[in-house]
């Protein structure tokens, strides 16, 4: 595998994590550099969402072993909100509804927290509304949705679109997209994928968790990893995704002697 740059963004070494005492991640190793797109695939229950939750700092999961560095900092030392401000964004597989909290209020709070972290002044109301408008267009998010409560009463597809909208607002360095494509029809998929592509640059990186090649047709990964039973059991170029699409996971299980 050819690497474009030598500076590291994310480095995961031998990461183990538990939930309720049960080991889910069992020694993950992964390195991500700026500008790269990595796809993570794997059967249901293999630990893909757990990996994204652990990277984002969800306290439900307990890291028992291993190291994670993000731009040279020990990521595991940081609170979830600090990780966000450092530039890690998670597009949730199941975005949660927060009744009563308007999208506008939610996003303005988030943006201002990010600005505070960078020792910047809070954004002015007019700049904020301009930013909202601009970023809404990236994912063609209806103004009506933006004025509702966070995810409340959104359809599955609208929730996913809203995730990418928030990503556009926060401009993360590392975006983790956890099955952002599931539940999207073809048009929505194209809009979401275009949104992600518009935000891509040589300075940021993307981890795409998906079951389907159709998303990878739009968001082209350089690296494809198979996560199985809490470990990355195979890594290759984009051709691996096509092979998995065609043959499923049984051949990998066989290779592993199962």
């Amino acid at each position: 595998m050819k690497r474009r740059k030598f500076n590291l963004m994310l480095e995961i070494k031998n990461l183990h994590a538990n939930v309720n005492g049960k080991e889910i991640l069992r020694g993950i190793n992964l390195t991500v550099r700026p500008g790269e797109v990595h796809a993570i695939m794997g059967p249901n229950g293999s630990g893909k969402s757990t990996l994204s939750s652990v990277l984002a700092g969800n306290p439900v999961f307990e890291v028992t072993e291993g190291e994670v560095t993000f731009e040279g900092k020990n990521l595991l030392d940081l609170a979830p909100e600090e990780r966000s401000c450092e530039g890690i964004f998670l597009s949730f597989q199941y975005p949660v509804e927060i009744p009563g909290v308007s999208m506008v209020n939610f996003m303005r709070t988030a943006i201002n927290e990010h600005r505070k972290y960078k020792k910047q002044e809070p954004i002015s109301a007019s700049d904020f509304l301009k930013l909202m408008r601009e970023k809404r267009e990236v994912v063609e998010l209806d103004n009506k949705l933006a004025s509702r409560s966070v995810n409340e009463g959104f359809s599955g597809g609208e929730k996913k679109r809203n995730e990418i909208f928030q990503m556009a607002m926060l401009e993360p360095k590392l975006a983790i997209l956890d099955e952002t494509d599931s539940g999207l029809d073809i048009d929505a998929l194209r809009i979401v994928a275009n949104g992600v592509n518009k935000l891509k640059s040589e300075h940021n990186a993307t981890l795409v968790i998906t079951h389907y090649q159709r998303l990878l047709d739009y968001i082209k990964p350089e690296f494809v990893h198979v996560l199985y039973k809490g470990k990355i059991v195979k890594s290759a170029g984009p051709e691996l995704a096509l092979e998995l699409e065609e043959k499923g996971y049984d051949w990998i299980k066989k290779e592993l002697g199962e």
Binding site: N58, E81, S84, F106, E113
Partner: peptide, 14 residues
């Protein structure tokens, strides 16, 4: 819910 809190945390909100 803890999920709601974590969702906010993930967006940078304490």
């Amino acid at each position: 819910s803890e999920d709601q809190i974590f969702y906010c945390n993930q967006r940078g909100i304490s």
